[in-house]
Simulated assay, not measured.
Amino acid sequence: MRQSGFTVLAALAAAFLAAPVLAQQAYPNKPIRFVIPLPPGGAIDIVARTTGNLAQERLGQPFIYDNRPGANTIVATDICTKGAPDGYTLCFLTSNATLNQYLYSKLPYDFLKDLDPVTILVFPYEGLYLNASVPARTLKELVAYSKANPGKVNFGSLGIGGSPHLVPEWVARNTGGNFTHIPYKGLPDLMRAFHAGDIHMMFLALGNPTYLEMIRAGKMRVLFFPGNTRNPILPDVPTMSEAGVPDHGFKSWWGLAVPAGTPKDVVNRLHTAFVEAVRSPAVRQRFGPLGLEIAGNSPEEFRKFILDDLPRGERLVKSSGARLN
Results as ranks from 00 to 15, higher is better:
112 L>S: 11
102 Y>D: 12
105 S>V: 12
167 V>N: 02
123 F>Y: 13
159 G>Y: 04
170 W>Y: 06
168 P>E: 09
114 D>V: 02
118 V>N: 03
146 S>L: 06
158 L>G: 04
169 E>Q: 14
158 L>S: 03
118 V>T: 03
122 V>E: 00
135 P>L: 06
125 Y>V: 09
113 K>E: 14
164 P>V: 08
111 F>A: 06
104 Y>Q: 11
104 Y>D: 08
157 S>R: 01
138 T>V: 11
155 F>H: 04
99 L>A: 08
96 N>E: 15
109 Y>T: 02
117 P>K: 13
118 V>A: 04
120 I>A: 01
122 V>T: 12
143 V>K: 05
147 K>D: 00
170 W>C: 00
103 L>E: 07
91 C>W: 01
164 P>A: 10
162 G>M: 04
100 N>K: 06
127 G>R: 00
112 L>W: 10
114 D>L: 07
99 L>F: 08
91 C>D: 01
140 K>Q: 15
95 S>R: 01
166 L>T: 02
137 R>D: 14
158 L>H: 07
93 L>C: 06
136 A>T: 11
126 E>N: 15
139 L>H: 05
157 S>A: 11
116 D>V: 07
145 Y>G: 05
140 K>F: 07
133 S>F: 11
97 A>Y: 07
139 L>N: 04
90 L>T: 01
98 T>H: 01
109 Y>M: 11
128 L>Q: 08
105 S>F: 11
132 A>K: 12
92 F>P: 03
171 V>W: 02
92 F>C: 00
95 S>K: 02
169 E>F: 10
131 N>I: 06
148 A>R: 11
98 T>V: 15
105 S>L: 14
140 K>N: 13
168 P>T: 10
115 L>F: 09
146 S>G: 09
131 N>W: 08
102 Y>A: 10
116 D>Q: 12
96 N>C: 04
114 D>T: 05
138 T>C: 12
113 K>G: 05
106 K>V: 14
134 V>S: 09
130 L>H: 06
159 G>D: 06
139 L>C: 10
123 F>L: 12
94 T>C: 04
146 S>K: 03
90 L>N: 02
134 V>A: 10
134 V>P: 08
170 W>M: 06
93 L>E: 12
106 K>R: 15
126 E>V: 13
98 T>R: 02
123 F>I: 13
153 V>Q: 00
154 N>S: 14
152 K>W: 10
155 F>E: 12
144 A>Q: 13
121 L>M: 13
171 V>F: 02
